[in-house]
């Protein structure tokens, strides 16, 4: 009945150092147990409601990210986990790093930290749940992201 009682998440690793990824997986394992919120990790974007993104975007993976985002059905929520996904983090000046995930897809919630603790990630997921419910009530649809966009910043 209620979407927020059983959200399925898809975990997308963009440009991450694995630090956030293993903490996202640690959230799903018995000690932190995200499944008590009904969260299930799912491999395919077509069945997912919440997209958990770790790591910044670079010139090679930007279209992979957009492609996955476009395949998730509405309503959908994007959760940026870690400093890299939020702003580019420690690597924001690297030549191959474009920046945070929000430069190409709309992000609903951010979890700061390098890397964030599992409690913080769970907090972000719970925040995403209420956003998901609001989007469903208001019938808010995510817009289709064009694969060939102007993601290269003007100062590059």
């Amino acid at each position: 009945m209620s979407l927020a009682k059983s959200p399925w998440i898809i975990h997308v690793n963009c440009n991450s150092c694995n630090g956030c990824d293993i903490e996202v997986v640690a959230c799903l394992t018995p000690l932190y147990d995200a499944e008590r919120f009904g969260v299930l990790n799912i491999g395919t974007p077509k069945q997912a409601d919440i997209m958990v993104v770790t790591g910044s975007i670079n010139y090679k993976n930007v279209n992979v990210l957009k492609n996955i985002y476009n395949q998730i059905p509405d309503p959908k929520v994007v959760l940026a986990v870690g400093a890299c996904a939020s702003t580019g983090g420690i690597f924001h000046n690297c030549y191959n790093v474009i920046g945070g995930v929000d430069q190409v897809i709309p992000v609903d919630a951010y979890v700061p930290g390098c890397c964030p603790r599992p409690e913080a990630i769970l907090d972000g997921v719970v925040a995403a749940l209420s956003i998901l419910e609001n989007k469903k009530k208001g019938n808010i649809k995510g817009k289709e992201v064009p694969l060939k966009g102007n993601e290269v910043p003007s100062n590059a």
Partner: peptide, 21 residues
Amino acid sequence: GYVHRGLEKFIDTKDYNQTTY
């Protein structure tokens, strides 16, 4: 190449203590 950040170049701008991080 999906996770390439360019760290070996990036250390040009950091001193040898910061490079540890």
